[in-house]
Amino acid sequence: MFTGIVQGKAKLVVAQKQEGLFTYTFEFPEDQSDTQIGASVAINGTCLTVVSKNQRQLTFDLMAETLRLTNLGQLQLGDSTNFEHAARIGDEIGGHLMSGHVHCTAPLKSRRVSENNLALDFEVPPQWSRYIFDKGFIGVNGASLTVGACHETGFTVNLIPETLRVTTFEALIPGDLVNIEIDPQTQTIVDTIERVLPTLAQRQFSSN
Rank of each mutant, 00 (worst) to 15 (best):
H151A: 02
A87R: 05
L62P: 10
V6E: 07
L62N: 10
A39D: 15
Q18C: 07
C47Q: 01
V102G: 11
V190A: 05
I5R: 05
D176N: 15
V190K: 05
D79G: 02
Q185R: 15
T35V: 09
E123R: 13
V50Q: 01
A10Q: 11
A106G: 04
F205S: 09
A201L: 15
I189K: 11
T156E: 14
A15D: 12
N158P: 04
L177H: 14
P107Y: 06
Y24K: 10
R130A: 03
R203S: 00
C150D: 05
G139F: 05
G90Y: 08
L48F: 14
A143L: 06
E152H: 14
L69K: 15
A149F: 06
D34E: 15
I5D: 03
L21K: 12
P29E: 08
C150G: 09
T146Y: 03
Q204S: 14
G175Y: 12
D91G: 11
V157Y: 09
A201M: 13
G136Q: 02
L77G: 04
S80A: 08
T146M: 11
Q16N: 07
F83A: 10
P174N: 11
G142I: 09
D79C: 09
D91R: 07
T46L: 03
F2N: 03
A143I: 07
P184S: 13
S206I: 12
V14D: 14
Q76C: 04
L77S: 01
R111M: 05
G94N: 06
D176M: 01
I138Y: 13
E115G: 00
N141M: 07
N54V: 03
T105M: 06
Q7Y: 07
I5S: 06
K135D: 03
Q16T: 12
T25I: 08
F60N: 13
S110K: 04
K11L: 04
F205L: 13
P184R: 14
S114E: 14
V102A: 03
G148R: 02
V13R: 11
R111Y: 06
A42E: 12
M98K: 05
L21A: 10
D34C: 11
T59H: 02
P125S: 00
V14M: 05
G100P: 04
V147L: 03
F60M: 11
A149M: 15
C47A: 12
I138N: 08
E84S: 04
V14P: 14
V147I: 15
T46V: 08
G175H: 15
E162M: 13
